[in-house]
Design a protein around this nucleic acid. Sequence first.
DNA 1: TAAGATAAGAGGGACAT
DNA 2: ATGTCAGTCTTATCTTA
Length: 311
Amino acid sequence: MEKEEKLRCPRCGSINIIEDSDTGELVCAECGLVISVGIASNMKDWRAFDSDEYVKRAHTGAPISPVRPSFGLDTGIIGQDSASKKSVRKLRRTKRHVSDSKEKTIEPALMKIKEIADALNIPEETVEDAARLYRMAAHKGLVKGRSMDAMVAAVVYAACRRTEVPRTLENVASFFNLKEKDVGRSFRFLFRKLGIKIPPPKAERYAYQICTKLNLPEEVAAQATRILKIAKELGATMGREPVGVAAAAVYMACNEMGIHRTQRELAQAAEVTEVTVRNRYKELLEKVRPIWLKQRKEGEKRAALAEAGGR
DNA sequence: TAAGATAAGAGGGACAT
DNA sequence: ATGTCAGTCTTATCTTA
């Protein structure tokens, strides 16, 4: 059935490597790692599955460099890589490969992926990943007998997670008029069966997204990112929904910078409840704020010194 | 009106059976 | 496969400043 190469997946060691004839990419059929080219380089950390584990096994160093993340959503930042045209063609050209009927049945799903991607402003890179995941699922017979919408929703959501595009289950589910929990169920089913580990979403991504929604200055996002970094190091985000933590961090950054935003506004932007924002905020106040303020003070001091010295 | 507090209920993960 | 357990988040309601 599957093509086999003499290659081994560097992540899971499987020799079950599929070649995507369109892109020439080598993809591990077991875990989905793209071996030769593509998004693999963007996906750094795979080990953890849920939020708890993520913090427990938090990679120590490696500060998440806040280098202009492309946070998407209605801002013009998405079209960075101008490969859109190429990848659309890539998606269309799926029939050329593999003669069997499976590829044919996949086509409508790919179209749906395109549709939802347009609606939710999802970048091409993510669309391709979703298509790739759907193919893997189809080849393993995981789609048969299940709602195609739910499966498409699941792979789109998964691709968003893998490529760190901040979209919630709710975002994806509502496009298909599905319930969040149903998409979630499909998502978990699919990726348990595929054996693919998908890293938890990063709170920093949501922080930027929230700031964008509320038209907050970049400095707020930068401060929120620092808060989140400290929170992570302290384990204060353990087991919490990243988007909720992000909302609280942004709220705290606003407060500290004299920008008035209510908890309700943050809650709405993050699509969580006020209670969640409150609870996360409370935790951040206790655990993170002291350290954060100290670091800020030190940072300012350094900046002042540097400026004085530079003159 | 914003924010804090509390309680009941749901859904899901870990773990054991 | 099914059940229990601990923990989170949501909804609803009430209180406080």
